[in-house]
Design a protein around this nucleic acid. Sequence first.
DNA 1: TGATCATTTCGACATCCGTCAATACGAAGT
DNA 2: ACTTCGTATTGACGGATGTCGAAATGATCA
Lengths: 111, 111
Amino acid sequence: MPDTPSPLCCSSLTAEPLSDGDAVELASLLKALADPVRLRLVSIIANASGGEVCACDLPALVDRSQPTVSHHLSQLVDAGLVAREQRGKWAWFRLRPERLTAIGELLATAR
Amino acid sequence: MPDTPSPLCCSSLTAEPLSDGDAVELASLLKALADPVRLRLVSIIANASGGEVCACDLPALVDRSQPTVSHHLSQLVDAGLVAREQRGKWAWFRLRPERLTAIGELLATAR
DNA sequence: TGATCATTTCGACATCCGTCAATACGAAGT
DNA sequence: ACTTCGTATTGACGGATGTCGAAATGATCA
């Protein structure tokens, strides 16, 4: 699990043509976000009071089975967009804003 | 073909939980971008001198067959990220920066 | 150690997606 | 009209993805 992925920090879509490797990495990041359920999970976590949400509440909020929600959360965590913390028997999730804003700034520099 | 899609303009990921419909629409936009070949196409177009590229050059640049490139370009056009113009027998493509920056700003407002 | 409860993993299924070869379409020129 | 050449569409194939029920894992408490 790469904690500090490489190309997000400096590359811009418009500064120079994307290398093949950077394109694959950026695509996998965007793919983690490019699903309605995962987008709603992210926005729910972002809007939670205290900035964190218990996994136990999420299946009802996005109207999916508990295994499905767990699957989507894993993808968000793997992409580095969301952080997972185990507290007692509950799992809590919070946003990693740096990652989101990094993607955002990369796209926002289009000209 | 919606020329002015609704939720991109005002909604933020963090302002309030995404509605189901907005999530679907945003997801389809991100999905259009979440592919290595399409990302490279976008960055190639963005870096082209004159801001536009002839379709005839693209298969070689992204190392895919002509039908595959045409398919990807269609998806980018359908998503409103790229504009297509027929000139003689050649098709030229240019970026639609507003759409890219809109996505970017939406993601960049994560907190 | 058992029992209980929250979460993840597994297995299966249907659908979607990227890809190419073959074909069809369209615009220019002869 | 016919040919040529660039681009789009079709059809098919393999692999990835979203989904769920069932079973496995892990953590707490009695």
